[in-house]
Design a protein around this nucleic acid. Structure first.
Length: 349
DNA sequence: AAGGCGGGGCC
DNA sequence: GGCCCAGCCTT
């Protein structure tokens, strides 16, 4: 049995039951694909359910405020996905009369949709013969054919796309695309793949050459930088605090945070106290300052390691950017802030 | 071509 | 600690 037939047969036996596999509705498929970008099924599944429940159609999503969409996305990461999702929903409703584009060439024009996502939607919803290439596909193909072209190079992207396009089942592109991804996720895993019980082990070139552990080849990313984040958790006598919206580029765009002092090195309480004396948010009032966490909370992002302190500052009154603490749970915040809010007992206020 | 962009899970 | 995950966008 050849590669394509074997993969599809394996899938028919081993596929997981997942909600987006029960539909060809382009809105739901699109939603699931955006959620699953760089995200494992287990992590994305509850978010998919929540979005379908709160926004059953693209019209519901288009009508929502961006802040609500970000709130529902909170904790999933890569928030540009949520911003683009919302912008694209509005675009389809307002400019395309609510009609989801139905070809790869049209779909890929949508904001937040690249080659992978366009191929997934076009094949699953509209039966177009266009092969998906995601992390799973890179791994399966690089191993089966023993290809060492770096997968995160432009040459690699072209090469693997062309190979997948050759292998795709022209009569059932949707099934093949989902099958090869599922195969990568459950059989040809990154670590310790179960090659002994693999239906492709007879002709897998990397296996015969003992190259499984070396493939796929990936150009290494730069190491994460360390930063020191000092969040100022103001609490006023009348139950207010300060949350600011992160504007511009950079992490957590359009999410909210406590006022932040970012430093190259860690900052002492004494030095922070001096800095605060001249802080306009305090307008020369007396204040008390205590560090909430006993040691810095290390929040690891792909490209930054954030050494974080939460400083509690009680003060009589606040004037700028204040919110009522009783409403704090309605703002979209990065999970680093969200975890703090959850663990810190604001109820006494 | 390279770097930015999250958070969780595994080893 | 490092690596990976149903990638995309900007520079």
């Amino acid at each position: 049995m050849n590669f394509t037939k074997t993969i599809i047969h394996w899938y028919s036996i081993n596929k997981r039951s997942l909600p987006w596999r029960e539909t060809q509705n382009p809105y739901k498929i699109w939603l699931s694909e955006i959620i699953l970008q760089q995200t494992q099924v287990k992590q994305g599944l509850p978010y998919y359910e929540a979005f379908v429940s709160k926004y059953p159609t693209i019209y519901n999503l288009a009508k929502a405020p961006e802040s609500d969409v970000l709130k529902l996305w909170q904790g999933l990461g890569y928030y540009s996905r949520a911003r683009n999702l919302h912008a694209t929903a509005k675009h389809i409703v307002n400019e395309l009369q609510g009609e989801f584009p139905n070809t790869y060439n049209q779909i890929i024009k949508l904001k937040g949709v690249g080659d992978y996502t366009a191929s997934a939607i076009a094949s699953i919803c509209f039966n177009e013969v266009t092969a998906v290439v995601d992390g799973n596909v890179y791994r399966v193909l690089s191993r089966y054919f023993n290809i060492d072209t770096p997968i995160n190079s432009s040459q690699g992207a072209k090469e693997f796309k062309a190979l997948a396009q050759e292998l795709i089942d022209k009569k059932q592109p949707a099934t093949f695309n989902q099958a090869i991804m599922e195969f990568g996720a459950k059989q040809c895993t990154p670590k310790n793949p179960d090659c002994t019980n693999c239906p492709l082990n007879e002709n897998c070139l990397a296996l015969s050459k003992q190259n499984i552990d070396q493939l796929p080849v990936k150009i290494k990313a730069a190491k994460a930088q360390k930063k020191h984040f000092n969040f100022l958790v103001f609490i006023s006598d009348d139950g207010k605090t300060i949350l600011e919206k992160r504007e511009g580029k950079g992490i957590w765009q359009n999410l909210y945070q406590f006022p932040l002092i970012e430093t190259e090195k860690s900052i002492s309480e004494k030095s922070l106290r001096n800095t605060l004396k001249n802080n306009s948010l305090l307008s020369n009032q007396k204040f008390s300052l205590t560090l909430y966490n006993s040691k810095p909370i290390i929040h690891k992002l792909s490209h930054q390691h954030l050494y974080t302190n939460f400083w509690i500052i009680t003060v009589k009154t606040l004037n700028t950017n204040t919110i009522n603490i009783s409403n704090i749970h309605t703002y979209p915040v990065p999970i680093l802030i969200g975890n703090f809010i959850e663990s810190f007992n604001f109820d006494f206020v």
